[in-house]
């Protein structure tokens, strides 16, 4: 800091101004530094998050792709041997079991979920509010608990493991998801539409069927697909009720034990045969592909819905 110029006494105003400028530049430098560190940390966080998640995707593709093919999806599994690595055959019966169980779970859950959603969308009476809370808590309920329930009521009373017990557990997982999405979709239907239909003399059931439901359909469908995507991959409740052993035979009858794909992955992952441990990745990739198809179509529908609403 220049204190004296040409022997003159120091100028207090000039000195103060320089001091302020110095402090300001220091503050700005410090704040820029801190900001850089913070934004840098955010980048670091994103990279740390992407490493393991990317590793999951890479492992799936790297170890799973060689299995994919028509015969893998449709043929029966072959009995494994410790000698050979490539005698795995297919997973046709597991694919069939998954299709049967999840289609039936959808058949049970979709009507109930949609009607519960319609009921919830119609107002906030005390029972409706209570049911709404129940639905929300059920959405986060650990799925294994529904397996315990299905075991107690279906496996014990039927005295047999069965696909149908898994259907019950999975449909109970699906109903809250569908009901929540349906409620939101029904509430998003403009009330002017509903009122106009009522004013024209239509009954409530007709209004629901011909006015509310068609315009809420994409939203409901989004929820149904998301619920299916969740049900297809559920393992914990299925493990308890479909039977303890992995089946190598065709079975389309849900009253008998079945081996759907998630159960097969669990069994193969812990298998003593290297060929089965390797094939677990083929099953996993198939299952993930199915889930991706379901979630992507759900996303496409909701994206299109948003576009239409804005236009």
């Amino acid at each position: 800091m220049s204190s004296t110029i040409n022997g003159l006494p120091p100028d207090p105003i000039l000195e103060r101004r320089e001091l302020i400028q110095l402090r300001a530049s220091q503050t700005i430098a410090r704040r820029t530094m801190v900001s850089r560190v913070v934004t840098g940390l955010l980048w670091v966080g994103l990279v740390i998050a992407l490493i393991p998640l990317g590793s999951v995707v890479l492992a799936l593709i790297d170890k799973g792709v060689r299995f994919l093919g028509w015969s893998f999806l449709t043929a029966l599994p072959q009995l494994p041997s410790l000698a050979s690595l490539n005698d795995i055959g297919g997973i046709g019966n597991a694919v069939a079991a998954t299709l049967v169980i999840d289609a039936l779970a959808g058949l049970v859950a979709v009507p109930i979920g949609v009607v519960v959603g319609l009921y919830l969308s119609q107002g906030s009476s005390r029972p409706a509010n209570f049911l709404r809370t129940v639905v929300e808590i059920m959405t986060g309920m650990p799925s294994i608990l529904l397996g315990v329930f299905a075991y107690e009521y279906f496996v014990v009373t039927m005295k047999s493991y069965s696909g149908i017990a898994a259907v019950i557990a999975l449909s109970m997982l699906m109903v809250p998801v569908i009901a929540k999405a349906a409620e939101l979709a029904f509430m998003a239907v403009p009330s002017s539409l509903r009122e106009a239909a009522l004013a024209l003399g239509a009954r409530e059931s007709r209004v629901a069927r011909q006015v509310v439901f068609p315009s809420a359909l994409p939203g409901v469908l989004t929820g149904v697909l998301l619920a299916l995507a969740r049900a297809v991959g559920e393992t914990a409740p299925v493990l308890l009720v479909v039977g303890p052993t992995i089946s190598n035979l065709w079975n389309w009858n849900p009253l008998k034990p079945m081996t759907p794909m998630p159960m097969l992955i669990f069994g193969y992952a812990n298998s003593q045969y290297p060929s089965q441990r390797a094939a677990a990745w083929g099953v996993a990739l198939t299952l993930v592909a199915l889930v991706v198809i379901l979630t992507t179509s759900s996303r496409l529908i909701s994206a299109r819905m948003r576009r239409e609403r804005h236009s």
Binding site: L50, L53, S55, V56, V57, A59, L60, K63, A229, R230, V232, G233, E234, T235, A236, P262, I265, F266, A269, N270, R277, A280, W281, A284, L287, V288, V291, V292, T295, R299
Partner: peptide, 24 residues
């Protein structure tokens, strides 16, 4: 794309994460 990847990974079944845990 990154947001889609994150949402996709939220939908990956837990048994697949278990398999990845054992194998990787």
């Amino acid at each position: 794309p990154l947001a889609s990847l994150v949402e996709l990974l939220a939908a990956v079944p837990s048994v697949v994460y278990g398999l990845w845990g054992i194998a990787v």
